[in-house]
Design a protein around this nucleic acid. Structure first.
Lengths: 224, 224
DNA sequence: CAAGCCGGTAACTAAACAGTTACTTGATGG
DNA sequence: CCATCAAGTAACTGTTTAGTTACCGGCTTG
């Protein structure tokens, strides 16, 4: 894929006039993916409209089918990309090498803030689970993406147990699920919750309170 | 609504042959509601098919539109009924009058087990939140249904604070959201979670472990 | 400068869908 | 035994939708 002096195409590569609203495959592809992410997040798999995606992307259905095959393949691509993005950002935390209590706290904060800034990711998860992971199961790319997270979590928990700050029964998967639960539910269910309890959960003050609550609960559940 | 000897209709009320697959409005209505609950839970609002609901109910579209108006009104009815059912069962716990620690533990257990036995309720919540509570917001019946829960929770938390078992900062809404988060996320996201972590979360052993975890986390977060 | 390829457009098609209408059946009451 | 009315059926309609096809135009290359 690297342009290693090959004669395939683009010798003169559009010398001046960097963008004259001309054709640009990469740009179109990326625009479709971004538009599809929004459309699927807002309307789910059943509710998303292919025409609407094409329009949001500033292109048309022909290109969408050209690049992605059909609606289902496009959806899977959107989902895979969303997972890759969060796991990549998470990896940069390097919680494995930190002080145990600080490491867990940082993971909780990161997860909460990522969820808060990427509501489309939560939506996509919800949609995919409504369909019992029908599309994610077919994905070959994602299996190994997640073992790294559990590995680092195990590492930091073990260290905490050795130094006596964490209880012996603390389990890496349970800790991650606890952190994710508290963030996911609050945000993804904010609309019904705000309605039934008559209290707007998304005000800055309430968000900050819940952030502190997540860190507090996570640490309280594993500290000796 | 009670049959107080009124002369409206059904004087002889079908004396023998209790059901000859004849007409029965109540039965048809209930069948449609039950079928709709399943269809909406499995496919969401956008994915649910009116024809499919009619077929599942053993009737046809004409009756569905006759009793419920249109698809949206039927959906709202399904959602309202689901909320009424969980809040009614919850009320029977009477946590307000119990020993504080036991009361909170019982609420956590009840919520977890109710979610486990009523996956369609979780699905409906997910669907409704995807649409930002568009239909629930229109409901007039549900506003007061939830103040009771928070009231009883406040009561039991206050008592726990007085007797010194709970910390002063424990907040009723936060406690409920913690319990609901841990149950909801584990179950509603079980499909993607099982896939990415390569571990079946729904085995009896894993379910029991998570049940114990929920009670542990909830109490650890508010105990002094 | 001619051939053809590739990014892109727009109109089309077959199927699926929500909602409607015209009709059937059977119980009741005069 | 006939008129009425409500429960229920089934075929129909207009619209929306995923996916396709016929075509355009400019760039690259021989």
């Amino acid at each position: 894929m690297s342009d290693s002096g090959e004669s395939v195409k683009r010798k003169t590569k559009r010398p001046s006039a960097e963008r004259t609203t001309q054709r640009d495959p990469e740009r179109t592809r990326a625009a479709i993916l971004e538009a599809a992410t929004k459309e699927f997040a807002e309307n789910g798999m059943g509710g998303a409209r292919v025409d609407s995606i094409a329009e949001r992307a500033g292109t048309n259905k022909r290109m969408l089918y050209h690049y992605f095959g059909d609606k289902e393949q496009l959806y899977l691509r959107v989902l895979e990309e969303a997972y890759v993005r969060i796991r990549t950002a998470e990896r940069a935390l390097n919680i494995g090498t930190r002080d145990p209590e600080e490491g867990i706290g940082e993971l909780a904060l990161f997860t909460w803030r990522y969820f808060l800034q990427h509501p489309e990711f939560l939506s996509l998860l919800g949609t995919e689970n409504l369909h019992r992971a029908r599309w994610l199961r077919q994905s070959v790319r994602l299996k190994e993406l997640h073992s790294h997270l559990i590995g680092e979590l195990s590492q930091v928990l073990e260290e905490g147990k050795k130094s006596g700050v964490f209880i012996e029964t603390a389990d890496p998967l349970h800790v991650y699920l606890t952190i994710a639960s508290l963030g996911y539910f609050y945000l993804s269910n904010q609309y019904t919750l705000s309605t039934i309890f008559g209290r707007d959960l998304i005000t800055p003050a309430n968000l900050e309170a819940w952030e502190r609550h997540i860190v507090h609960v996570t640490l309280a559940s594993i500290k000796r």
